[in-house]
Design a protein around this nucleic acid. Structure first.
Lengths: 259, 259
DNA sequence: CGTCCGATTGATGCCCTTCAAAAATGGTGG
DNA sequence: CCACCATTTTTGAAGGGCATCAATCGGACG
């Protein structure tokens, strides 16, 4: 496959566009919807591709007007809600391929800020243009609604993580979910390098950073994971998932081997 | 089913439709968007109005395909996520004028169930028809996206309620938020009759029902509210809001009067 | 090699959960 | 109208898990 053919029209052009979208992880937005050539071309003209973002840089701040949605391409982000007393609440982490900026849909202004946890790059889609194109493409409209709906599901899962689950459960749930998402983004499901600090994880899970650290250590003692700073190896994914669903029951009934 | 003037065109028809929408609380969906006559007419033909729902009845179950969105008209609902072990997680409460059913947008299937807490009635909007009309009405599309975005905000507020806030804070936050919403739905902001049980509130706030009850009693002791079963009078809304934002600080530093 | 920031580990206190029982509420039928 | 029951709510007592304070450890970087 040639990588540089500058064909202007025909299949070659479409191929180039599709390739770009697939690389840029925008495929979640347009590819599964079966969008045709002309539509892709329009999207392509609208999307600002592969904008680099330095670690610590913000895609937007709280209060910024909704200008564009972002799709992570490389690196990782967190979205943070800062309360008036300076307390940070981490709303989510965002891996390549995931949409950032939906928090402004309700009011037209961002209510949280998106911070790059590592050096990163994003694709940028002007919101107004996206919606106006969606007006004419049923597939794109449905896809957009579906993606927003999936974000709703994620928020609900986040709530489920926080409600009446104890620390070990939340941490297992977090690692398990992160592993799946890293795999979906093209990484290894068992060998992770966490882009976020223990403090960030704590502010996401509603736990003190020390509790997160202790939880990691405990999982390591039990042989489920191996931790070295931000490097995490998942040794027993099944057990991890089991702990994620209820840690409190059968702590000694089915105990095998050492206590 | 027309019950009155069968006018086909002209202002009368439009007025009737607007009235219906306003009464039906669908105004949040179409009225502020400045929708014109023909569009309202189309919406009107699509909406099944004022369907009664008995207490305990479900609008949908987990796993049901996404058929329609609902707008509460009278009464109250809760949406509940039931985990495999039978544990209930209350995702939200829904007052008149609020949209129910968005949980299915991501997958096309409902993941929670919507239960009527009281005898109630709803308007029912077939989802496919709504989106296909939205394709042709920029205002409606934007309004739809805005409403979904507002739901996202609510989920995030819910998360903020759960993370690192202690019981008294969550309960004050809950009462304060409910008061505002009841007022928005046309009720009294200070005199509430809770449609949900202490258990429901507990499953929403991530607390044991006993803790909720104790929290109410404590607020009463402090003269902030007056409780009698499910009847709650808010005596000091300012103080309630203050407690909602940080209960733990300045308990004795800036203490005035009694310790 | 020394500094700095993040991660780990320890000890203590407290808030909330849990178990338990009494009290109140609401609906039903005599 | 009142008695009766089921359900919900309130209140009490005890124990545990997590936050907090504090110190040490470890790696990254100049």
């Amino acid at each position: 496959m040639d990588s540089s053919a500058p064909a202007r029209h025909g299949r070659l052009d479409l191929e180039r566009l599709r390739r770009n979208c697939a690389r840029c992880s925008l495929h979640r937005l347009c590819e599964p919807a079966g969008i045709g050539a002309s539509e892709l071309e329009r999207l392509d003209h609208v999307v600002r591709r592969r904008r680099p973002v330095a670690r610590g840089e913000r895609l937007f701040h709280a209060g910024d007007p909704l200008g564009a949605l972002f799709v992570g391409r490389e690196g990782a982000f967190k979205t943070v809600l800062v309360s008036e007393d300076g307390e940070e609440q981490v709303l989510g982490f965002h891996l390549p391929g995931e949409l950032i900026g939906l928090d402004a849909l309700g009011s037209g202004q961002h209510r949280c800020e998106a911070v790059a946890l590592t050096d990163a790059s994003v694709c940028e889609v002007p919101y107004e243009r996206l919606t106006s194109i969606a007006m004419q493409l049923p597939e794109l409209q449905h896809q957009l609604l579906r993606i927003i709906g999936q974000r709703l599901e994620r928020e609900q899962d986040h709530i489920g993580m926080l409600v009446r689950r104890q620390a070990g459960e939340r941490i297992a749930l977090f690692l398990h979910g992160l592993s799946r998402r890293v795999a979906q983004a093209g990484g290894s499901a068992t060998s992770l390098v966490l882009p976020m600090s223990r403090d960030d994880i704590g502010h996401f899970l509603g736990l003190a950073l020390e509790t997160v650290s202790r939880g990691f250590s405990r999982l390591q003692d039990e042989g489920v994971i191996q931790v070295s700073g931000r490097r995490v190896e998942i040794l027993d994914a099944d057990e991890l998932e089991r702990m994620a669903n209820r840690e409190t029951d059968t702590p000694r009934l089915q105990a095998r081997g050492s206590a």
